[in-house]
Amino acid sequence: MATKAVCVLKGDGPVQGIINFEQKESNGPVKVWGSIKGLTEGLHGFHVHEFGDNTAGCTSAGPHFNPLSRKHGGPKDEERHVGDLGNVTADKDGVADVSIEDSVISLSGDHCIIGRTLVVHEKADDLGKGGNEESTKTGNAGSRLACGVIGIAQ
Protein backbone atom coordinates (compact mmCIF):
# COMPACT_ATOMS: atom_id res chain seq x y z
CA MET A 1 0.00 0.00 0.00
CA ALA A 2 1.19 3.50 -0.83
CA THR A 3 1.43 5.61 2.30
CA LYS A 4 2.20 8.95 0.63
CA ALA A 5 0.91 10.79 -2.42
CA VAL A 6 1.36 14.21 -3.99
CA CYS A 7 -0.50 16.47 -6.41
CA VAL A 8 0.86 19.43 -8.37
CA LEU A 9 -2.02 21.83 -9.10
CA LYS A 10 -1.90 23.93 -12.28
CA GLY A 11 -4.49 25.80 -14.31
CA ASP A 12 -4.85 28.24 -17.19
CA GLY A 13 -4.47 31.21 -14.85
CA PRO A 14 -2.26 32.11 -11.88
CA VAL A 15 -3.53 29.38 -9.52
CA GLN A 16 -0.96 26.73 -8.64
CA GLY A 17 0.05 24.63 -5.68
CA ILE A 18 1.38 21.43 -4.20
CA ILE A 19 -0.75 19.19 -2.00
CA ASN A 20 0.59 16.21 -0.04
CA PHE A 21 -1.26 13.17 1.30
CA GLU A 22 -0.20 10.68 3.95
CA GLN A 23 -1.99 7.63 5.37
CA LYS A 24 -0.14 5.64 8.04
CA GLU A 25 -2.64 2.75 8.29
CA SER A 26 -4.81 1.27 5.53
CA ASN A 27 -8.06 2.10 7.34
CA GLY A 28 -6.75 5.23 9.08
CA PRO A 29 -7.34 8.88 8.22
CA VAL A 30 -5.50 10.65 5.41
CA LYS A 31 -3.61 13.82 6.27
CA VAL A 32 -3.80 16.42 3.48
CA TRP A 33 -1.51 19.44 3.55
CA GLY A 34 0.19 21.96 1.31
CA SER A 35 -0.26 25.39 -0.21
CA ILE A 36 -2.18 26.89 -3.13
CA LYS A 37 -1.41 30.39 -4.44
CA GLY A 38 -2.97 32.77 -6.97
CA LEU A 39 -6.50 32.49 -5.56
CA THR A 40 -8.95 35.29 -4.80
CA GLU A 41 -9.45 35.90 -1.08
CA GLY A 42 -12.05 33.64 0.52
CA LEU A 43 -13.37 30.09 0.25
CA HIS A 44 -12.77 27.76 -2.69
CA GLY A 45 -14.27 24.30 -3.24
CA PHE A 46 -11.69 21.49 -2.98
CA HIS A 47 -12.58 18.07 -4.37
CA VAL A 48 -11.18 14.83 -5.73
CA HIS A 49 -12.74 14.18 -9.14
CA GLU A 50 -13.32 10.75 -10.67
CA PHE A 51 -10.77 10.60 -13.48
CA GLY A 52 -7.04 11.23 -13.67
CA ASP A 53 -7.57 12.70 -17.13
CA ASN A 54 -6.45 16.29 -17.71
CA THR A 55 -6.20 16.05 -21.52
CA ALA A 56 -8.80 18.82 -21.97
CA GLY A 57 -7.71 20.71 -18.88
CA CYS A 58 -9.57 20.25 -15.62
CA THR A 59 -12.93 19.56 -17.31
CA SER A 60 -11.87 16.07 -18.45
CA ALA A 61 -11.48 15.01 -14.80
CA GLY A 62 -15.21 14.26 -14.71
CA PRO A 63 -17.52 14.63 -11.70
CA HIS A 64 -16.59 14.33 -8.03
CA PHE A 65 -15.25 10.89 -7.05
CA ASN A 66 -18.46 9.22 -5.86
CA PRO A 67 -18.25 5.39 -5.88
CA LEU A 68 -21.15 5.11 -3.39
CA SER A 69 -23.56 7.16 -5.58
CA ARG A 70 -24.40 9.62 -2.82
CA LYS A 71 -25.40 13.29 -2.92
CA HIS A 72 -22.79 16.01 -2.47
CA GLY A 73 -22.07 17.14 1.08
CA GLY A 74 -19.46 18.54 3.41
CA PRO A 75 -16.42 16.60 4.61
CA LYS A 76 -18.01 15.93 8.02
CA ASP A 77 -21.39 14.84 6.60
CA GLU A 78 -22.54 11.22 6.48
CA GLU A 79 -24.10 11.90 3.04
CA ARG A 80 -21.21 13.01 0.82
CA HIS A 81 -19.12 12.02 -2.16
CA VAL A 82 -15.85 10.31 -1.28
CA GLY A 83 -14.10 13.23 -3.02
CA ASP A 84 -15.85 15.99 -1.05
CA LEU A 85 -13.07 17.74 0.89
CA GLY A 86 -15.00 20.97 1.52
CA ASN A 87 -13.27 24.33 1.11
CA VAL A 88 -9.83 25.83 1.35
CA THR A 89 -9.50 29.44 2.54
CA ALA A 90 -7.27 31.91 0.71
CA ASP A 91 -5.91 34.91 2.61
CA LYS A 92 -5.67 38.50 1.29
CA ASP A 93 -2.48 37.52 -0.58
CA GLY A 94 -4.34 34.73 -2.41
CA VAL A 95 -2.61 31.91 -0.54
CA ALA A 96 -4.49 28.95 0.96
CA ASP A 97 -2.53 26.92 3.48
CA VAL A 98 -4.19 23.51 3.48
CA SER A 99 -4.33 21.26 6.53
CA ILE A 100 -7.08 18.63 6.49
CA GLU A 101 -7.56 15.19 7.99
CA ASP A 102 -10.18 13.04 6.25
CA SER A 103 -11.37 9.53 7.12
CA VAL A 104 -13.32 8.81 3.91
CA ILE A 105 -10.64 9.16 1.22
CA SER A 106 -7.87 6.55 1.17
CA LEU A 107 -4.57 5.80 -0.55
CA SER A 108 -5.69 2.19 -1.15
CA GLY A 109 -8.86 0.14 -1.61
CA ASP A 110 -12.27 1.18 -2.90
CA HIS A 111 -11.88 4.83 -1.84
CA CYS A 112 -8.36 5.20 -3.27
CA ILE A 113 -7.70 8.67 -4.67
CA ILE A 114 -4.36 7.85 -6.35
CA GLY A 115 -4.65 8.34 -10.11
CA ARG A 116 -7.63 10.67 -9.73
CA THR A 117 -7.68 14.48 -10.13
CA LEU A 118 -7.66 17.03 -7.30
CA VAL A 119 -9.45 20.28 -8.25
CA VAL A 120 -9.62 23.72 -6.63
CA HIS A 121 -12.71 25.70 -7.68
CA GLU A 122 -13.58 29.35 -8.30
CA LYS A 123 -16.25 29.69 -5.61
CA ALA A 124 -17.08 28.41 -2.14
CA ASP A 125 -18.57 24.93 -1.87
CA ASP A 126 -22.00 25.25 -0.24
CA LEU A 127 -21.57 21.69 1.12
CA GLY A 128 -24.80 20.49 -0.50
CA LYS A 129 -26.95 22.97 1.42
CA GLY A 130 -27.63 25.44 -1.43
CA GLY A 131 -31.23 24.34 -1.97
CA ASN A 132 -30.95 23.47 -5.67
CA GLU A 133 -30.06 20.39 -7.73
CA GLU A 134 -26.58 21.66 -8.61
CA SER A 135 -25.81 21.97 -4.90
CA THR A 136 -26.40 18.21 -4.47
CA LYS A 137 -23.93 17.48 -7.29
CA THR A 138 -21.18 20.12 -7.12
CA GLY A 139 -21.87 22.38 -4.14
CA ASN A 140 -22.23 25.28 -6.61
CA ALA A 141 -18.44 25.69 -6.45
CA GLY A 142 -18.15 27.11 -9.96
CA SER A 143 -15.41 26.68 -12.52
CA ARG A 144 -12.25 24.65 -12.07
CA LEU A 145 -9.30 26.99 -11.49
CA ALA A 146 -6.50 24.42 -11.17
CA CYS A 147 -6.08 20.67 -11.02
CA GLY A 148 -3.59 17.85 -11.02
CA VAL A 149 -3.45 14.07 -10.92
CA ILE A 150 -2.69 12.56 -7.51
CA GLY A 151 0.38 10.33 -7.74
CA ILE A 152 2.31 7.98 -5.46
CA ALA A 153 5.13 9.73 -3.57
CA GLN A 154 8.23 8.48 -1.75
Rank of each mutant, 00 (worst) to 15 (best):
A2H: 06
V6I: 05
V8I: 14
V8D: 14
V8P: 03
L9K: 00
K10Y: 15
K10F: 15
G13F: 09
G13L: 07
G13K: 09
Q16E: 13
Q16W: 12
I18Y: 14
N20Q: 07
F21I: 15
E22C: 09
E22A: 13
E22G: 09
E22R: 11
Q23W: 08
Q23D: 05
E25I: 15
E25F: 10
S26G: 10
G28C: 04
P29E: 15
K31H: 04
W33C: 13
W33L: 10
G34E: 04
G38F: 06
L39W: 06
L39F: 06
E41H: 15
E41A: 12
E41D: 09
G42D: 05
H44K: 09
H44W: 02
F46G: 04
V48Y: 01
V48C: 15
F51G: 03
D53L: 00
N54F: 12
N54Q: 13
T55I: 03
C58R: 03
S60G: 04
G62L: 02
G62W: 01
P63T: 06
F65D: 01
L68E: 13
S69V: 15
H72W: 00
G74L: 04
K76L: 14
E78K: 06
E78H: 10
E78Y: 13
R80F: 03
D84H: 02
L85I: 14
N87Q: 05
N87G: 03
V88Q: 11
T89L: 08
A90G: 10
A90L: 07
D91A: 10
K92R: 13
D93G: 15
A96N: 04
E101R: 15
D102P: 13
S106W: 07
S106T: 13
L107S: 03
S108I: 05
S108L: 09
C112N: 13
I113W: 00
I114M: 10
I114T: 10
G115K: 00
R116A: 00
L118K: 00
E122W: 10
E122T: 07
E122C: 10
K123W: 15
A124P: 10
A124E: 10
D126C: 05
L127G: 08
L127K: 07
L127C: 09
L127T: 10
G130R: 08
G131S: 14
G131A: 09
E134D: 08
S135H: 03
S135T: 07
T136A: 06
T138H: 06
N140E: 15
N140D: 09
A141Y: 01
G142L: 10
A146F: 15
G148S: 07
G148D: 05
V149F: 04
